[in-house]
Design a protein around this nucleic acid. Structure first.
Length: 555
RNA sequence: UGACCCAUAGUAUAAGGGUAGUACAACAGUUUUUGGUACUGUGUGUCUAGGUUCGAAUCCUGGUGGGUCAACCA
């Protein structure tokens, strides 16, 4: 019965185990996580991070963090810093912090080696001319008129490219492979181009930069990476990856591809996320509605929850769209264990307990977390006038409603049972106040009343409650898969994804901490936002509680 | 109309030729001083047609469907 408890391997782990069993690389496992510093990391990167770091960890190996910074036009130090912070926050430590730009000298020599082997040439064609000569997927390309330059001429031209003698776009270095290949990437790919841009690390040292295909595999090889794990769109690059390594006669790192993560009601494209930021659809990369690591962190998601999510979604090669409810499940699962329970009324209704003495204040004991007996308790003031949730009263209750209604009783969590005696309305017929009476011997912990009520609701003492800004988030997109819809993805942004309200929270929350997670009882999980000031508390709703009543109410 | 990758419940993911499982979602119920949590139960799922085999989700072939590739991006 108990033998099936071991988790099945994903196909990458399978490959690694097979390699170890075959004695490849003497059993050594070295992976890398290779972000381009041109944007913030998102949930899709989290999958890759967990896979790369996780697999290495599992097999006693290590993982390098390597920035793929070969395009100075889009890359910035700000992104480098955010990426490092996000990887650390997720809970992973890299063996070495490296940059493809560290290898620019090396890569330049590699290029000359190819030229010397008559496997690369400088092409003076314009990009339009090259595009024409490249052919199409169904039509083979034709050779460039510059393809048969002599090695000496190529060496000289390439050197002069490096020396800044030519303007951008006038010359490129191409690998000499096969213009008729069915793989477009093998049709003499450009491996070096001229760019007079300041690089975030090398400054103005270089005016030529290697292309991805001439940097990534070689960087892997230089670092002796054993398993270079990337996403499916790089499958056709593998042939070129192997070609470079073979012809450069360097360490044979191997590339393996898995399907990237897509999340429902979200987008995971750095380009599109950047648009949302630049065009102010969100407040920044770390807006809590963003599927970025920094956004999720600010939202109150935990690294444990994200790692568990990445574990549960699995790794395979088929396109997938993961239901965001699985992510939310993982978040709730973890927060349920660690969140401090507190009371907060989001949409208040005044309740006066007519038979409770005016001016009297009782300090009641409230447990901090029923899931964690070590978490202790705190005290909460109770008094004659309290606030409850508007939702928790129904003037004409339906059969299955078991909260407060005229003549009915509910339990105030951690406090007394009360009975609704009178409903007070304003001139518009709006309910503005409830007059209730409490059952004196029904206090939580020493209830001798013998009364059994079906409902328990949360509350705060009006005089002691603290006002707080609460930000309620909904999914950022109205459709399941915005990237597949017609037209601009921004047309599908949910305009109501942020709702800001003023809530009344229990006084203990004036000491709320940025590092703590809270459950507003019966309402959801919340965390303090960094916008909080000494004058104003600001909370983010991380995720709501599962609400079977909401479903029932719709019926 | 080329090459390459992929195809198992609504969504993901296992089953390494031998009983098609698991999780989320959904639905029903039990417990409950959170309509939370926990627990129990509920499923006409192997794209299709052939082939190999005692036996195929698994191996082979054809088809169908989806994805990727024609950036001086990664």
């Amino acid at each position: 019965m108990a033998e099936a408890t071991e988790k099945a391997l994903n196909f990458i782990e399978q490959i690694i185990e097979d390699d170890i069993a075959a004695g490849k690389n003497d059993g050594r496992v070295l992976t890398r996580f290779p972000p381009e510093p041109n944007g913030y990391l998102h949930i899709g990167h989290a999958k890759s991070i967990c896979l790369n770091f996780g697999a290495a960890q599992k097999y006693g190996g290590k993982t390098n963090l390597r920035f793929d910074d070969t395009n100075p036009a889009t890359e910035e130090t700000e992104y480098v810093e955010s990426i490092k912070a996000d990887v650390k926050w997720l809970g992973f430590d890299w063996a070495e912090e490296l940059y493809a730009s560290d290898y620019f000298d090396h890569l330049f020599e590699f290029a000359k080696k190819l030229i010397n082997k008559n496997l690369a040439y400088v092409d003076d064609s314009t990009s339009e001319e090259m595009a024409v000569m490249k052919g199409t997927p169904t039509v083979p390309g034709i050779n460039s008129p510059y393809r048969e330059r002599t090695i000496e001429e190529n060496l000289d031209l390439f050197e002069r490219m490096k020396n800044g003698e030519f303007p951008e776009g006038t010359h490129v270095l191409r690998a000499k492979i096969n213009m008729a290949s069915s793989n477009m990437l093998m049709r003499d790919p450009i491996i070096y181009r001229i760019k007079f841009a300041t690089h975030h690390r090398t400054g103005d040292k270089w005016c030529i930069y290697p292309m991805y295909d001439f940097a990534h595999g070689q960087s892997d090889s230089i670092e002796n990476i054993t398993h270079s794990i990337c996403t499916l769109e790089f499958v056709p690059h593998r042939e070129l990856y192997d070609w470079c390594i073979e012809n450069l006669e360097i360490f044979p790192s191997k590339q393996y591809e898995f399907a990237r993560l897509s999340l429902s009601y979200a987008i995971t494209s750095k380009r599109k996320l950047l648009q949302l930021v630049n065009e102010n659809y969100v407040s920044g990369w770390d807006d809590p509605r963003m599927p970025t690591i920094s956004g999720m962190r600010r939202r109150g998601y935990t690294p444990e929850a994200i790692r568990e999510f990445c574990e549960r979604i699995g790794v395979a090669k088929r396109d997938n769209l993961i239901d965001v409810s699985l992510l939310e499940f993982c978040v709730r699962e973890h927060l349920n264990k660690i969140a401090t329970r507190v009371m907060a009324v989001l949409d208040p209704l005044k309740v006066v307990i007519t038979n409770y003495p005016e001016g009297k204040v009782e300090e009641l004991t409230a447990e901090n977390n029923p899931e964690d007996h070590e978490s202790g308790s705190r005290s909460m003031p109770f008094s004659r006038e309290i606030l409850i949730e508007k939702d928790d009263f129904m003037e004409n209750p339906t059969k299955k409603y078991f909260r407060l209604a005229p003549g009915l009783m509910v339990r105030l969590k951690h406090a007394y049972i009360i009975k609704c005696d009178e409903v007070i309305k304003d001139e518009n017929g709006e309910i503005v106040e409830l007059r209730c009476s409490y059952i004196e011997n029904s206090r939580s912990g020493n209830d001798t009343s013998g009364i059994a009520v079906k409902g328990t609701i949360h509350w705060v003492s009006t005089a002691h409650a603290v006002k707080a800004e609460v930000r309620l988030y909904d999914r950022l997109f109205k459709v399941e898969d915005p990237s597949r819809e017609d037209g601009d993805f921004k047309d599908y942004v949910n305009q109501d994804s942020l709702q800001t309200i003023t809530a009344f929270v229990e006084p203990s929350l004036v000491n709320a901490s940025l590092s703590e997670h809270y459950q507003f009882l019966r309402k959801g999980y919340f965390c303090l936002d960094r916008d909080t000031t000494p004058e104003k508390l600001v909370f983010n709703r991380t995720v709501g509680l599962k609400d079977t009543w909401a479903k029932e109410a719709v019926k």
